[in-house]
């Protein structure tokens, strides 16, 4: 239950940053916090009490005492994709700063590059 609370509060804190902050880099930081929260939420949904990791490394491990492997497989790729999209977002931020010399979204008014 504690995991759910942690994950949901991470998501809400990240969304708060995205909604209220005016600095572009701060918005990207908020998005990455939301990303972490969603990943934690996925993994904690798949958890089973008193179970082991889904790896059959010893003959004594049985299938009915293991956590759900599907969310783990999804989150595994989601983390890597999250890094790549964060990098693209930061590249755009660097380009915008280059052109406007500011990161404040209220001062960036023109839509042209």
């Amino acid at each position: 239950m504690l995991y759910y609370i942690g994950a949901i509060s991470l998501i809400l804190i990240g969304m708060y940053a995205v909604l209220t902050k005016k600095n572009l880099l701060k918005i990207v930081v908020g998005l990455s916090i939301v990303d972490s929260g969603v990943n934690l939420l996925f993994i904690s949904v798949g958890y089973v009490k008193d179970a082991t990791a889904p790896i059959f490394s010893m003959p004594s491990l049985t299938a009915d005492k293991m956590v759900d492997p599907v969310p783990q497989a999804l989150v595994l790729t989601a983390i890597v994709i999250g890094l790549a999209t964060t990098a693209v977002a930061l590249g755009l931020v660097i380009r915008l700063y280059d052109h406007h010399k500011t990161l404040n979204i209220n001062k960036i008014r023109q839509l042209k590059w």
């Binding site: 798949g46 990791a53 956590v67 983390i79």
Partner: peptide, 14 residues
């Protein structure tokens, strides 16, 4: 936390 949730693969990635 991922390690405690029995997800070593994800913990390594993170």
């Amino acid at each position: 936390l991922f390690y405690l949730l029995q997800a070593p693969d994800v913990a390594l990635t993170e």
